[in-house]
Amino acid sequence: MANNIAAQRIQREFKEVIKSDEVAKCAIRVELVNDNYTELKGEIAGPPDTPYEGGNFVLEIKVPETYPFNPPKVRFITKIWHPNISSVTGAICLDILRDQWAAAMTLRTVLLSLQALMAAAEPDDPQDAVVAKQYKDDQEMFRLTAKHWTAKYAGGPGGNPDFEMKIRRLTDMGVEEDQARVALSSYNWDLERATEQLFS
């Protein structure tokens, strides 16, 4: 019975997303991961006029047995540089996925809310403190970093030769690429400080 309500509900929401205008505009997408509707794969297009524009972000959506009375468990699979999303685990800090969840919300509203979160970060309620600090202290640095991450992980446009060069310097020293990128991003692309942190 418990599973039935959740599965039945997800089935309908799945159809709702597929038929929605946003799918027609390629803004959101969902795919089934297994047959019993307990896990799905979501996709969000990076919103226009943000550093995420042009990127495609994949989400892991796990539906609890107690759905829709408890929220789905959602995290970013695609690495993203955002104050409310962990740059390491992809965990999301969003009120509707926690205590503000209501049974009337759906997969569609969750995906759209995440898209809205990407367009309007909440640095005062951060998931990733390092990103949030950069966002508050140096907006331009944040924008460039987020854009670089989008190009690297989400298939976004444009590269950043300066950033690429710095990463290569670190990988040449034997540092793993993702690790190098996190360190450099965290230290505002200051190669010296990133190196110091990595080898201390």
Partner: peptide, 15 residues
């Protein structure tokens, strides 16, 4: 807002 009785039970048990 409306729930069916089964879902109401499920809601109560979850909470």
């Amino acid at each position: 807002h409306v729930t069916c009785l089964d879902c109401f039970r499920q809601y109560c048990v979850t909470r």
